[in-house]
Amino acid sequence: MTGSPVLRRTLAVLGVLVGVWLVVPTLIVVPLSFSGEDSFAFPPRSWGVQHYVTFFTEQSWLTALLVSLQLAVIVTVVATVLGTMAAFALARSRFRAKGAVDGLFLAPLIVPGIVVAVAMYAAFLGWGLIGTPTGFVVAHTVLALPFVTVNVTAALSGFDRTLERAAASLGASAWATFRSVTLPIIRPGVLAGALFAFVTSFDEVVVSMFLQSPNLQTLPVRMFTSVTNEVDPTIAAASTVVLVVSTALLGLASVTRRNRRHA
């Protein structure tokens, strides 16, 4: 027992070191995005914002950003609605294959991304969905559904159903009960799932690479193309934008989940 405080401090130091080891290489991208050079020299010898100007004005980068944002918004709406419905079905139903269905919804989180991408490519190729907006929406929705389902299911696990019965006894319809009683209580879980769905779609690259076409590319795919085919420091600005958006949304999701636990 006398060594437990030392052990805790040691583990805390190791945790900080591991965190620094993981985060610092990513943060190097931020100063590179403000470099005034047309190379990846670090540390930068001069400073400027020309890479951001290029990112927000060059047609290929701007189009890819708008495609990713539009796709992420659509996927967020679709995944949130479907995931919430699935969470209700899984949380409030009892049937023999429930465990298998739960595992099916979590499969996109467990199966390696490249396996999912190849499977989707093979299926979508036969359905004529490669390089189409519909194909992207369907694929990204499949990847985002588990995050919504898990968060909403967690919110429903602590929900007191007597509140719904009380509303029904006062004459409220099923929809009115859901809108006025259930949804306000589980809203933090729904919002957290929606935020994770947005980030999942916005950051997805492996599946998007298999579904892309010359006329339809997401921002992560455009970034991958920039890395492999050219030496363009604009990717540092693009990476910083993705980093800021993803970090802000994930931080908001964490705050939302914390508020849900406190509630």
Rank of each mutant, 00 (worst) to 15 (best):
1 M>Y: 12
4 S>Y: 09
5 P>Y: 07
6 V>E: 13
6 V>K: 11
7 L>N: 11
7 L>Y: 13
8 R>T: 07
10 T>H: 10
10 T>E: 08
12 A>S: 04
12 A>C: 02
15 G>R: 07
16 V>G: 01
19 G>T: 01
20 V>M: 04
22 L>C: 10
25 P>V: 00
26 T>N: 09
28 I>C: 00
28 I>S: 04
30 V>I: 08
31 P>V: 00
33 S>W: 01
34 F>M: 09
34 F>S: 03
36 G>C: 03
36 G>R: 00
37 E>T: 13
39 S>T: 14
43 P>T: 15
44 P>H: 02
46 S>V: 01
47 W>I: 10
48 G>Q: 08
48 G>N: 09
48 G>K: 03
49 V>F: 14
55 F>E: 06
57 T>G: 04
57 T>S: 10
58 E>Q: 12
60 S>R: 13
61 W>D: 07
61 W>R: 02
63 T>E: 12
65 L>D: 11
66 L>G: 05
67 V>D: 11
69 L>G: 12
69 L>V: 15
71 L>W: 09
72 A>K: 11
72 A>M: 04
79 A>I: 09
80 T>N: 04
80 T>V: 06
82 L>F: 13
83 G>T: 08
85 M>I: 13
85 M>D: 09
88 F>H: 14
90 L>D: 11
93 S>D: 10
94 R>A: 11
94 R>Y: 10
94 R>Q: 13
94 R>T: 13
96 R>C: 07
97 A>Y: 10
101 V>W: 07
101 V>E: 08
102 D>A: 07
102 D>P: 03
103 G>P: 02
103 G>I: 04
103 G>K: 05
105 F>A: 03
106 L>E: 08
107 A>G: 08
108 P>H: 02
109 L>P: 00
109 L>K: 02
112 P>N: 12
114 I>V: 14
115 V>A: 13
118 V>D: 05
121 Y>P: 01
121 Y>N: 08
123 A>F: 12
129 L>K: 02
131 G>E: 06
132 T>G: 02
132 T>Y: 03
135 G>D: 09
138 V>L: 15
140 H>S: 06
141 T>F: 12
141 T>M: 06
143 L>S: 00
143 L>V: 01
144 A>L: 00
144 A>H: 00
145 L>T: 05
146 P>N: 09
147 F>T: 01
151 N>W: 06
157 S>Q: 14
159 F>C: 04
160 D>M: 05
162 T>V: 06
165 R>P: 05
167 A>T: 04
170 L>P: 00
174 A>V: 05
174 A>K: 09
174 A>E: 13
175 W>L: 15
175 W>A: 15
177 T>M: 10
177 T>I: 12
180 S>C: 06
183 L>C: 11
186 I>N: 05
193 G>W: 08
195 L>C: 10
197 A>Y: 09
197 A>N: 13
202 F>G: 01
209 M>R: 08
211 L>P: 05
212 Q>I: 02
216 L>E: 05
217 Q>Y: 11
218 T>K: 07
227 V>S: 02
230 E>V: 07
235 I>L: 12
235 I>E: 03
235 I>R: 02
237 A>K: 01
243 L>W: 01
247 T>I: 06
247 T>V: 15
248 A>K: 06
249 L>W: 02
249 L>D: 03
253 A>S: 15
256 T>M: 06
259 N>I: 10
260 R>N: 12
262 H>Y: 13
263 A>L: 15
